[in-house]
Amino acid sequence: MSQIEIIKLNKFYTVGDTIIPGVNEVSLNIEQGEFLSVVGHSGSGKTTLVSIVGGILRPTSGQVLYNGCDICELDDNGLSEYRNKKIGFMFQFASLLPILTATENVLLPALFSPDQQQAKDNAEKAQRCLELVGIGEKGLAYPSQLSGGQQRRVAIARALMNDPEIILADEPTGDLDEDTEREIMELFSRINEEQKVTIIFITHNLELARQAKKQIRMHQGIVEELAL
C-alpha cells in the first residue's frame, strides 16, 4: 500500500459562470520516503494538488488515501489533526508569525497538538529542530531580524516539530538567492534521507526539480508526465 494514493481527484473553481478545473482526474501514488518534485506553469494545478494532499483544501470529487484512509472524508477536526500530526507545511512566502520568536514559531504546531501541549521537553525539541536546520543560535530572534534564508529554515524547523511523515513545500525557495536555494534543497535531501520523511515540493525551476528522486509535471490540472 502506498503512503498516499490519489484516485480520480478533481477540483473545480467557479469564477462567475465559468468553471475552471484546478485538478482534473488526477490519479497518483506516492510512496513513503519519496522525494518528489512537482513542476508546471502558473495555474497548472500544482498548488491545488499539494494543498488537497495536505488537507488545506477539499476536492470537488475523488479520493486521497493516506495509508488507506480517505482524508477527504474527515471532518474539520480530523483534517486538522491530520495536518498537525502527519504533515509539515512550507509556503512560497515567509510564513512565520511576526509577533513570535523563531523558537515560538517552531513551537506553534505543538501548541495545536493535544499530545504535545503538555510535553515538558517542547522547548528543547524546538531548539533541536532549529539546530538541525543550522540556526540554533537564532531562537530568540524575531522573523524581522532574520534573513530570507533563515526564515525559510525556521519554517522547515517548524514543519519538523511534530515529527511529520510528509513535508509539503510550495515553492519554498521562490525568492531566495542561488546559494541559499541550494542550501535549502540540501537540507530537504538530508531530512529525506536521514529521517525518511516524504518530501513533495513545488517549483518552477527545472534545475531544482531534478534534485528530487522523482518528478511530475502538471498542465491544466492534469499530471502529464512522471519524469523530466
Binding site: 495536505g54 486538522s80 489533526e81 495536518r83 508569525l97 501548541l111 495545536f112
Partner: peptide
C-alpha cells in the same frame, strides 16, 4: 494569512 498558516499547521477552528 496568519490564521491560514496556523490552520495549515494543525490549528482547529476551536483553537
Amino acid at each position: 494569512k496568519e490564521i491560514g498558516i496556523m490552520r495549515a499547521i494543525g490549528a482547529k477552528e476551536s483553537h
